[in-house]
């Protein structure tokens, strides 16, 4: 399979306190990758670097085999990017914005635009700045998804939306990616997006790339144990956190081996929620 987006050893120093990277990341057709991390972890910066809106200090980014900072800008027709804030849209109505956007994209799907406008009940005759933040996000999606580029990049697309709209958004994206060979990268704090949409989680913590994980590989790696005995004070192999009679491990095999060897009885093993796993990954980064 051919990689559509390839990031190698990417590094960018923002100031004395913050450095992004090094990051290695591959995006393949048909996949959805969620970019997750604490606030200020560098998710938006990474997306800007992909779009050549900022310059890296080191490393390479290729989109459809073209360096994004190269002379050949043909890759721009194959990628649609929804930034967190849209600059210069305030004075225009949805109708005007559509008139400005659609001619730029040869695969623009007008029927899909209309479908999204009707689905979210977006008023097209009001100026952008007059719309609530939730409606602004809906209009932005209506102006981005119908570009029908193979690669879609979304930065926090649903943070202001209500619960039913978030659900409709998920169904919309699932339907969209199923239509053709496509891929999505989505920076999000929304549990629903991460659970229902993502195949891979790219985890960032204060600029550090904690890792990129396939979802089930990650969830199957974590286990929660209920221990009837008292736990030894020393850290147990695989231990991520403990509280009273509960122990979380990110290496169940070695943890259980330790239990057996040390005659520690545990009476229940259960899965750890993806949200908790992300929290452990991001907190672990803080200490290291």
């Amino acid at each position: 399979m051919k990689t559509w987006l390839e990031i190698n050893d990417l590094q960018k120093k923002i100031d004395d306190d913050f450095q992004l990277g090094p990051i290695d990341l591959h995006i393949d057709p048909g996949t959805i990758t969620a970019l997750v991390g604490n606030n200020g972890s560098g998710k938006s910066t990474l997306l800007k670097l992909i779009m050549n809106l900022a310059n890296p200090d080191m490393g390479n980014i290729k989109v459809f085999d073209k360096f994004v900072y190269g002379q050949d800008e043909s890759w721009k027709n194959q990628i649609a990017y929804l930034p967190q804030t849209r600059i210069g849209w305030n004075a225009y109505t949805g109708n005007t914005l559509k008139g400005l956007t659609s001619p730029l994209y040869p695969n623009w799907d007008d029927a899909l635009f209309t479908k999204i406008v009707e689905l979210f009940d977006i008023p097209l005759n009001k100026r952008y700045r007059k719309l609530s933040q939730g409606i602004q996000q809906k209009l932005s999606l209506a102006l981005t998804i119908p570009r029908n580029t193979p690669l879609l990049i979304l930065d926090e697309p649903t943070s202001f939306m209500d619960i039913p709209s978030k659900k409709q958004f998920i169904d919309l994206l699932v339907d969209w990616i199923d239509q053709d060979e496509r891929a999505i990268v989505i920076a999000s704090h929304q549990t629903g997006d991460i659970k229902k949409l993502s195949d891979y989680l790219c985890v960032l913590q204060n600029g550090r790339h904690v890792g990129t994980f396939e979802k089930e590989t990650l969830t199957e790696r974590y286990a929660r144990y209920w221990i009837s005995d008292t736990l030894p004070e020393s850290t147990i192999p695989g231990e991520v956190s403990r509280e009273n009679h509960q122990l979380i491990s990110n290496n169940p095999a070695t943890t259980e081996k330790f239990f057996t060897e040390n005659d520690i009885a545990w009476n229940n093993r259960s899965a750890v929620d993806l949200e908790d796993i992300v929290t452990y990954l991001v907190n672990k980064g803080k200490e290291g």
């Binding site: 048909g30 996949t31 959805i32 998920i170 169904d171 699932v174 990616i177 199923d178 659970k195 229902k196 949409l197 993502s198 195949d199 891979y200 396939e214 979802k215 089930e216």
Partner: peptide, 16 residues
Amino acid sequence: PSIRVLSKDLEISIIT
């Protein structure tokens, strides 16, 4: 259901 739709319903990755 398509692989993508079932993955969404079951909250798992398309790889699985």
